[in-house]
Nucleic acid binder design. Structure first.
Lengths: 289, 289
DNA sequence: ATCATGGCAGTAGCTGTCCTTATGGATAGG
DNA sequence: CCTATCCATAAGGACAGCTACTGCCATGAT
């Protein structure tokens, strides 16, 4: 009764109009088939077929049951094909590179989920700078890379976006403005500055260059955002950081938007040298949901 | 793998996020469940769940498989309810009465098919005259009866219809007409007549009475149609029979339609005293297809 | 009538699946 | 560090289900 082979047998009996023929099709003895059918009818407590001398035909109830049995067999077949189609995803590997901030905030939970869904795929991550990501992509050493402000001609999957924010000590003159006030890029860059990179070449310095300005007075350059916040808090200078990297503890600090907001966008792009593997496609597809 | 309980277990694991909890729900040991899941994954050759310290979550492939497994469980449930709903039809009986002609031509194959579809229902037939059918129906002694030209106010299921045909010897004067000629009821009833009843009170005599005519010269009255044909062939007289009862061997006989066609309709009607049983309803439903 | 054929049911015995009990290992939380 | 929780594994046993064989019945041909 609970054996799927028996349901398959049931369908076969209906198709052949004969227990013997059905038994042969599903590869068992006539005796086994006869017993199986009798057992199913006994379990259900109802006759499913009428045994006539030359043929075994379904009863009215049998017809309904057969219909549902076909549904079961269809589902079973669907499982088989699903598994077969998913076989390329059972093994595989993905090499993926990113700069630290996106790695920590976006990629880690994403990849954790992906690993949970695809335990057979080995995902290796490289924590590098944004310029190194491009180098690795060009060299074909990684399958996926996180890039900032991707060129539109490249097929890129946007992970998220944020904007640059000014961080100042609460007692700094510019921080005395109204609660919803902003700071212009020009006036910010003229202040004594703490340059924080977060491991990215796309930082305050490159923003200044792009805007035709320059950083007049760089007091310190640090890699870690938190180091920059301590320095700002101590009054060494002001700084400019991505929204994502804002400090959790903001005592002694004033965070202000720029008057003309500067956004940055980070996205996943595939290798330039190879087409995406099944594993990479699965990852991008998961990202689309 | 081929055990339906295992698929049920699979769904339960997905629902609970835990093998142990699922095992409890389906009523087996944690160990059995663990083995079963491992066995299924081994058979499919793919991992369906990722075992994490606190929870067991489906993989991407697992999600697809679970979806199909739910379909299977749904079908199984549908079978259970179907069988339960059909239980009243497993036992039961139908008493059905008819006059001989319809019994032989319509009812026998119909009931044979019904018996094949509903072997648990005992069908008993009574071969009576058409007037006795009404008596039995009124007395509540039968569940179904075949009646002629049912009153429209009664809920009747039409089985079929035919018309009355004249049968004459080929050398009879009236039989000398053209191939597509007809005979009027009046001129036919004036001939020397062989009255055939077929066990029905609705016969040539009742037709005559209904038409305001009479049978002037009844030479013989017989019950069997075939006896009447022999008598007609021998020149004893002419006769009037239903289309259905026409002879298979027509040598020596001429069959002609009536100028004004007289139809008869036979239909199944239920008992007047009791509502139809589940078995009777099933029979009528089968007839509707 | 008699026999041959084809299909289903029943019996005995064995094989193999699957379950249970018991134990070990890994991890998160107190 | 200890405990609770969850899963995996080992060993043993019970039972389902299969095979091989026989019997029965109905049909159809000789």
């Amino acid at each position: 009764m609970m054996n799927l082979m028996h349901w398959r047998l049931l369908v076969a009996v209906a198709d052949h109009g004969s227990i013997t023929a059905a038994a042969e099709q599903v590869g068992m003895t006539q005796s086994a088939a006869s017993q199986a059918m009798a057992s199913m009818e006994a379990t259900l407590g109802a006759q499913l077929f009428t045994r006539e001398p030359r043929k075994t035909l379904p009863t009215a109830l049998g017809l309904s049951v057969i219909e549902q049995a076909r549904v079961m067999m269809g589902a079973l077949q669907a499982i088989r094909t699903t598994v077969d189609e998913a076989r390329p995803l059972l093994r595989g590997s993905i090499r993926i590179a990113s700069f630290p901030m996106v790695m920590a905030t976006f990629l880690t939970p994403l990849l954790q989920r992906f690993r949970q869904l695809n335990p057979g795929i080995e995902v290796t991550t490289l924590d590098v700078t944004d310029s190194e990501v491009h180098t690795l992509l060009d060299a074909g050493l990684i399958d996926l890379g996180v890039v900032l402000n991707p060129k539109p001609e490249r097929h890129a999957t946007v992970l998220g976006r944020d904007q640059w924010m000014a961080v100042l000590a609460t007692n700094h003159p510019l921080a005395q403005r109204a609660a919803d006030a902003s700071v212009s890029l020009e006036e910010l860059l003229e202040q004594p500055f703490v340059l924080a990179t977060g491991g990215c070449t796309a930082n305050a310095r490159s923003l200044a260059t792009a805007a035709g300005l320059s950083l007049r007075d760089i007091r310190v350059q640090v890699r870690e955002w938190n180091s920059a916040y301590s320095l700002v808090r101590e009054g060494v200078g002001v700084t400019l950081v991505p929204e994502m990297a804002l400090p959790t503890q903001r005592n002694g600090l004033r965070v202000m938007p720029l008057t003309v907001a500067l956004h940055r966008e980070f996205a996943l792009v595939g290798s330039h040298t190879q087409p995406p593997s099944a594993a990479v496609s699965a990852l991008l597809k998961m990202l689309a949901d």
